[in-house]
């Protein structure tokens, strides 16, 4: 167990240290988030009531696209130094590798969305109460978790495919559509724009997705990357 944890920490700390030093992925994702914010804002801006209706959709589009950029670079570091096979061949428990990568991706996406989500709200002239903002944040957190839990193992698999950068979003977006529906509708309920009285039941659905795919990915991962 302690070996497991030390592998997990070593990979996570290595990735975060490299990222914080060079900031390459974070910088690209953030800038991409800004561009998306601008496009979404001038594509959708309208009267205050409509802005409130379209906000969750805009937010989840930004999440999916910046997220796709992020998971596409999960193993960029390893690929650049041809270290991926070394990592897989090492006796390190593979679940620990996957979990570290998932957490690294989640942190990256959350850092970007923590900037993009308020920015889109500002551009659409929206005002939220504290409770509304909290529910939006919770939904975003759980949806982002669902996204990385599906996207990270598939990003590992995609390293061996041609056109991986195109194929990965093509494969991941349909798979995370339950998260998209549940997040958009749940936030809509929280903001009072979608019919339904209970934003928490949508949170439960996203959570169930996170658990099923998280556990499934971890269980299958050693089979996915053997030798």
């Amino acid at each position: 167990m302690s070996a497991w944890l030390s592998v997990f920490w070593a990979i996570l700390a290595k990735d975060l240290r490299v990222e914080l030093r060079s900031k390459q992925t974070l910088a690209m994702m953030t800038l991409f988030g800004f561009v998306l914010t601008a496009i979404l804002a001038y594509g959708l801006v309208s009267d205050p009531a409509t802005n409130r209706v379209v906000y969750p959709g805009a937010l989840w589009i930004a999440l999916l696209f910046t997220g796709a950029l992020g998971i596409g670079r999960t193993f960029a570091q390893e690929a650049a130094f041809d270290a991926f096979s070394a990592l897989v061949l090492s006796p390190a428990p593979r679940e620990a590798i996957l979990l570290a990568k998932i957490l690294g991706n989640l942190l990256l996406i959350l850092m970007v969305m923590a900037l993009v989500a308020p920015l889109i709200a500002v551009m659409l002239h929206l005002n939220f109460t504290g409770e509304e903002a909290g529910l939006v944040a919770l939904h975003l957190l759980l949806s982002a978790l669902g996204f990385v839990v599906v996207g990270t193992p598939l990003a590992v698999m995609a390293t061996s495919a041609r056109f991986a950068e195109v194929l990965l979003p093509l494969v991941v977006f349909p798979l995370v559509s339950p998260v998209l529906i549940s997040g958009v509708k749940g936030v809509g309920v929280a903001l009072g724009t979608t019919t339904g009285d209970d934003p928490w039941s949508w949170i439960q659905l996203t959570l169930a997705f996170d658990v099923v795919y998280g556990a499934g990915g971890l269980l299958l991962f050693s089979k996915m990357v053997s030798e």
Binding site: L154, A158, T159, S160, F163
Partner: peptide, 19 residues
């Protein structure tokens, strides 16, 4: 279009199982 390597087959299999 992904190329017929063993890795792509595994990728496809994981995709089908996740689906």
């Amino acid at each position: 279009y992904g190329g017929g390597t063993e890795g792509v087959r595994r990728f496809g299999a994981v995709l089908a199982i996740f689906g």
